[in-house]
Nucleic acid binder design. Structure first.
Lengths: 386, 386
DNA sequence: TTATTTTGCTAAACCGATTTATTCAAACCG
DNA sequence: CGGTTTGAATAAATCGGTTTAGCAAAATAA
C-alpha cells in the first residue's frame, strides 16, 4: 500500500479536471489466458443422467425433493445428490420456468429508482425478498404509461412470479390483465382507480392536512402548495388535505402545479419564477421530495430566508432536509413498514394461501418530522418592503 | 376535485402521526368482475399456425423477418403479419431465449442502488439502452461477494445478454467465468485485479491528489481522509492520491478507515468519535458521497464550523453538498459520460463487431466542484483552546 | 423429354427442464 | 397358481418457440 505510484494502469495519463479522457489497452498477461478453460459447456440434466447411467426423470425428481413421493431408492438419491453437488449442477432456470410457469422473481416497478424514497423502498424489499428465496428486479416507469405497458408485457412473458407497482395513470387495463391472468400484484404509493387489488400507502390526505394545520397553528396565513399536475391519487389526496385545512380556516389557496420531469433544473426554474411572483407567501408545502429539494434551491435563489421569510414543509424525508440550515420539516413516509407490508402481502399471495380474499387497502400513518423550517411566524412582518 | 372529502376509501381513519395502521377491504363492484374474461389463454405460435392452416415454422420465419431469405411468398407474409397484428400475438420470450440463448436484457449490478451516484448512472444507462431495444434490470451487490455470485449465476442461466458490473472484492473467478462463456461484460467504478476486461472509471488517484492539493494550496495542513477499509481499486487509488499529495509536502497523514455498512447512523457515530479525538485537524476529505453525508452530520454533531474550523471535500456530488450551508466542495464524477461510455462499450460488444479486441481501460476526468466548504485557512487559528 | 434447380412450405429436432403415463420385476393375496 | 399391489425407474409428452433438413411442385436447363 505504501508505494503504488502507478496503480491505475501504467500510463502517465494526467487526467486532471477538464482533461481529455484517456483510453488505452490493458497489458495482456499470457499466463491468464488459461482461465478460458472454464469454457466447459454448462452441463444439463441429461449430462448428469448419462454420466450416472440413469434417466433424466430420476435426476429431476431427486433434485426437486420428490424422491420419497416418487419412491426413488435411498441409494440412488445419495448418488445423484452427491454428483450434483460435486459438479455444481444448476438447472437452467429458463427451461424450468418455461415448463413450470414459475421463476422466483418479483419485479418492482417504481416511478423513478433514483428517487431516494423509491430507492430505499427497493433496498428494503430486496432484503426481505432475498431471505424468502425470491430475487427482486426493479425498473423505473418514468410515470410513462407506454413504457410501463412495455415493461409489464416483457415481465409477463418472462413468467415473473409477482409484481409490486407504483402505477402511472392509464394502465388500468394492463394491470387488470395481469390480475386476470392470475399474477399476484400489489400496488403502492398511488391508487389506480378501476383496479381492485391490494394496495399499500400512507394516508396522504390526512398527513397533508396535518402538515398544513401545523403551519396554520404557527401563524402562517399565506400557505402555498407546490405539486405535480398529476391526477394520480396520492397527489390528489395531498391536494385535498391542503385544501381542506385552508377551507376550514377560510384562507386563500395558492397552488402551483408543475409537469413531471426528470430534469430538476427545470423544476427549480419554475419554482423560482413562482416564488418571485408571489411575494405574499409566508409558507410553502412541497408535495414530493424532489420538489422540496428543487424548492429549497429556488428559495435560496430568491434570497428569502427560511423560516422567517418563508416557512417550508416537504413531503418525504431526505438527507437534504435533515442537513439543511435550517433543517426542513418533512412528512416522512415509513419506508421500512411500507416495504414490509408490500413484501408480506405479496409473499402471502404467492403462497396462495389466502386464495380469493378481498383486496385490502393498507393505509399507514406518515410522520410529521417537525424541524426548524417551520418556526413560529413573527408578529406582523411588515418589514419586508420591496 | 372540489369536494372529495373521503377519497381515501371511506373510513374515518384518523391516521395522524403515531396512529395505528388502518386495514380494510375495498368495496367490491360486481360490474368489474367481468374484467376477468381477459383470462383467455395467451396464444402461442401453434395457435396462429392452426388458425391460418399453415405450419409454425412459416409463422416463425415470417415474424422474425426471414421471409425473403426463406423464400416465403409475399401473400403468405401479408396474411401472417396481418393476423399477428390483429391478435396482438407476442412470442413467449422464455421459449425463445431457451432456444436462441438471447434475451435482449442487460443487467446492471451496482454496489447499492439507493446511492444517488449509482441510481443516476442506472437511469442514464436505462434511457440509452432502451433506445437500442435493450431492457435493463438492475440489482445491488451490497459489496457482498456471496450475493453477487448468486446473482451472476442467476442472470447467467437466464441468458442475460450483457453485464455492467461494479464488482465487489473476490469475484474474479465468476467474472472470468462469464467472460470465458462469451458474455459481454463491462466493469466500472472499481478495477478487478485479475480480470482483463473493458473498464470505465474516473482517474481516482489523480482527482484525489488534486483535491488534496486544493486544500494544501489554501493553507490547510492537517488534512484527514475518511474512507472505507476496502481493497477495491477505486478506494486504494483515492488513498494513494491523498498520500502522494501529503508526502510531497511532508505533511502528516490522518487516515480513518471504516467498514462498509448500509446503516448511515453507524458511520455518523464512528466519524463523530474520530473527529472528537482529532481536534488538530483543519480539513477532511471523504472518499464517497455517503461518507460525506454522514460526515457532515458528524461535523455538525461536534459543533465545528465549516470551513473555518474544518474544511471539507467529499467524493461524488450530491444534493446535500450543493445545498449545505456552506456548500460543500465535491469531486464530481461525470455521470452522463460514464453511463454513455458503459452502454456504448457494451452495445459494441453485443453487436459483435469488434470481436477479439483488446480490453480497454477508459479513464474519464472528474471535476472538482469548488464550493464554500474550502475557503482559505485563517491565519493562525490559535483561538481554539479546549 | 429428362435432369436439375428453384420455389414455397413444413416435419421433425432441439433448447433443458418438469410431469404424466408406463414398464418391469418383485412382493403380496386369496 | 393367477391376479393384484407395490417399488423403482423410465419413456415420452410438454412448455413455446427456432432451426435444420427435406419434400413436392414448378421452373429451368440440357
Amino acid at each position: 500500500m505504501s508505494e503504488v505510484p502507478d496503480k491505475t494502469g501504467g500510463t502517465n495519463s494526467t487526467a486532471v479536471p477538464y482533461s481529455i479522457s484517456t483510453i488505452k489497452a490493458i497489458s495482456e498477461d499470457p499466463a491468464d489466458i488459461k482461465t478460458l478453460s472454464n469454457l466447459k459447456k454448462k452441463l444439463s440434466i441429461k449430462d448428469l443422467a448419462r454420466e450416472l447411467n440413469i434417466s433424466a426423470t430420476s435426476v429431476s425428481f431427486i433434485l426437486n425433493g420428490k424422491a420419497r413421493e416418487k419412491r426413488i431408492s435411498e441409494e440412488l438419491v445419495r448418488k445423484v445428490e452427491l454428483y450434483a453437488e460435486k459438479t455444481g449442477y444448476k438447472p437452467n432456470s429458463l427451461a424450468r420456468s418455461l415448463r413450470t410457469g414459475k421463476s422466483n422473481i418479483i419485479v418492482l416497478m417504481v416511478e423513478n429508482i433514483s428517487n431516494p424514497f423509491f430507492a430505499n423502498i427497493a433496498r428494503c424489499i430486496e432484503d426481505k425478498a432475498y431471505r424468502s428465496g425470491y430475487k427482486i428486479i426493479y425498473c423505473s416507469t418514468d410515470n410513462n404509461a407506454e413504457k410501463t405497458r412495455d415493461l409489464i408485457r416483457m415481465y409477463q412473458d418472462r413468467h415473473v412470479d409477482g409484481y409490486i407497482i407504483t402505477p402511472p395513470e392509464g394502465i388500468e387495463e394492463e394491470v387488470n390483465g395481469l390480475i386476470a391472468a392470475g399474477s399476484p400484484v400489489v400496488l403502492f404509493d398511488r391508487h389506480l382507480p378501476g383496479v381492485k387489488e391490494d394496495f399499500v400507502s400512507i394516508n396522504n390526505e390526512e398527513s397533508t392536512y396535518t402538515a398544513t394545520k401545523h403551519l396554520l397553528d404557527r401563524g402562517y396565513r399565506q400557505v402555498a402548495l407546490i405539486t405535480l399536475n398529476s391526477l394520480q391519487s396520492q397527489m390528489q389526496d395531498r391536494l385535498n388535505g391542503y385544501e381542506r385545512a385552508l377551507k376550514e380556516m377560510k384562507l386563500p389557496r395558492h397552488i402551483k402545479e408543475l409537469a413531471y420531469t426528470a430534469d430538476s433544473s427545470v423544476l427549480t426554474r419554475h419554482i423560482t419564477a413562482f416564488l418571485k411572483r408571489h411575494t405574499e407567501l409566508d409558507a410553502v408545502i412541497f408535495s414530493t421530495n424532489y420538489l422540496g429539494v428543487s424548492g429549497i434551491k429556488a428559495i435560496n435563489a430568491t434570497g428569502r430566508r427560511i423560516p422567517d421569510e418563508l416557512a417550508v414543509i416537504s413531503f418525504d424525508d431526505h438527507d437534504v432536509f435533515e442537513l439543511n440550515t435550517p433543517s426542513i420539516t418533512a412528512i416522512a413516509q415509513p419506508i421500512e413498514e411500507i416495504a414490509e407490508k408490500l413484501i408480506t402481502t405479496l409473499l402471502g399471495k404467492l403462497d396462495g394461501k389466502n386464495q380469493a380474499h378481498k383486496p385490502q387497502d393498507i393505509v399507514l400513518p406518515a410522520l410529521l418530522l417537525v424541524r426548524n423550517s417551520t418556526g413560529f411566524k413573527k408578529a406582523m412582518t411588515k418589514k419586508r418592503v420591496r
